[in-house]
Every structure is written in C-alpha cells, then in structure tokens.
C-alpha cells in the first residue's frame, strides 16, 4: 500500500474555553474525492484553516506527502501543494483576472519549477480558459457575477499547481445549473490527478461527488466511510435532523 497523501492525527484547536476541534483524525489517499460535511459551527472552517496553516492547531499532527506541516505558515503549505478556495471569494480587487491568477503562479508554482514571465502569461490564460473566464482576462473582479467569482477563486487555487485542493463551499448560493457546472469542473480536475476535499452544504452535490464522506459534529469526527452508509448512520441523521 502506498503512503497516504494527507494524514491528520489527533487534531485539536481551542479558542479560549471553546473547543472548536478535538481529536480529529483523517487520512486522504492520492487521487481521492472526499466530502466533508457537518452542521454550522461544527468546526469545518477551523479544520480547513488548520490544514492550510491560516490557524495553528494546538494539538495533533498534519502530515502531507510525507512531510510534517506543523509550524509551517499558509504560504509555505501552498508551495508544498495544499491549496484552498475561500468560502467567500476573496479576489485581489485592483488586479485583472489574469493578474489574480498570476500571483499563485509567481509565488507558489514558480517555487516548484521555473516558469518564466512569458510562459506565466500563457498559463494564466490557460487556467482562465479551463474555468471559462478567458474572455474576461483583462476585466476586474468587481465586474464578475457570483458564479464567475467562484470560478476565479478555483482558477486561482489551481494556479498554484496543487496536489490537494480544498474546495470550501465553492457552490453555496449558486443555481442548480451553476452547481452542476462547478461539479463538472471539479471532476475534470480530479481526473487530472488532483485530490479534492469538498466542504459543502448542498447534499446533492456532495453525494454525487464524493467517494468517501466525513462528518464533523461539534468539533469531533462522528463518521467516515462510503457516502451511502454514512448518511444512514443514526448519529449523523440525529445531528442533521435534531438541530
């Protein structure tokens, strides 16, 4: 058996007296599609922030591609291959779309292999093409619609050439068709070898996408398995229907 891509052991995080995460374990293999669900306030965002280095975890270890990530800051982790898209898109407002995508190319992908300035511009356009935004390469983010903003967010995450993409509610607030649009995009990426953890409230999307489903409730992992089994688990049903 090969080494897992991501290994989380005993992850814990407190804010003052509030325990946001406690003893969370998670193993993700190369090429997997994992769905992470949980009610509001269950610690999903804290979990993502601890994985990406935006927050420091108090307990436990995060190991990625065989390296311990503890103590590494967010920019160091993305350079090693953990990328995220933000729940609320956070584009660089004064830059064009192409420049938005250029930042992770210059700072994350470049640290992996040399790209050079002329090829970087081509890379930007390729990425925008992939998400269907190439026609707006020179537009500013303020001119984008909601779904275009999400796509830009994904393109920017991909520009760093990640091995693991954490899509944090990339579809919230989108229409039925737009959700399918993003889903298809994530599937394509996965087929190209990117491992994906999807955090989502839209159950239809999570269930059709995930090979494995993980449930967080009140900072603890209560389920981890095949989606059809997990959603029948009594405590999962209780956590969703009870609250």
């Amino acid at each position: 058996m090969t080494e897992p891509l991501l290994q989380v052991k005993g992850l814990g995080k407190r804010f003052g007296g509030f325990v946001a995460l406690s003893e969370v374990d998670l193993t993700v293999n190369n090429g997997e599609r994992v769905g992470l669900i949980g009610p509001n306030g269950s610690g999903k965002s804290t979990f993502v922030n601890c994985l990406c280095g935006s927050l420091r975890n108090d307990q436990g270890d995060v190991t990625f591609a065989g390296h311990r990530m503890n103590g590494l800051s967010a920019h160091q982790r993305i350079r090693r291959g953990i990328a995220r898209s933000f729940q609320l898109p956070r584009p660089f407002g004064t830059m064009t779309l192409a420049e938005n995508v250029l930042i992770p190319i210059l700072y994350a992908a470049e640290s992996k292999h040399h790209i050079g300035s002329t090829r970087a511009r081509g890379r930007c356009l390729d990425l925008l093409q992939m998400v269907g935004l190439h026609a707006k390469a020179d537009a500013k983010p303020a001119e984008l619609t909601q779904i275009e903003m999400r796509k830009l967010e994904l393109a920017r995450a991909l520009a760093s050439e990640p091995r693991l993409l954490i899509a944090d509610e990339a579809m919230a607030g989108l229409t039925h068709r737009e959700v399918d649009d993003i889903l298809a995009l994530l599937m394509t990426l996965n087929s190209q070898g990117v491992t994906i953890i999807m955090i989502e409230h839209i159950m239809r999307a999570v269930l059709s996408f995930s090979q494995r489903l993980v449930v967080l409730v009140a900072g603890r992992k209560i389920a981890d398995g095949a989606p059809e089994d997990v959603i029948r688990q009594p405590d999962v049903v209780a956590a969703y229907l009870g609250s």
């Binding site: 935006s54 800051s73 993305i78 995220r84 660089f92 407002g93 930042i103 700072y107």
Partner: peptide, 20 residues
C-alpha cells in the same frame, strides 16, 4: 505583484503562496 496582493487582501495573498 506580491506587494499589490498584500494590499488587496493579505489573507488571500498568503493563501496564494505570497510570504507576506
């Protein structure tokens, strides 16, 4: 470009690999 990314959104800059 790194400077501008920090100016626009420091958090997103860090998440894009910029050593802020």
């Amino acid at each position: 470009f790194g400077f501008a990314a920090i100016r626009d959104d420091e958090h997103a800059a860090e998440a894009s690999g910029v050593p802020t």
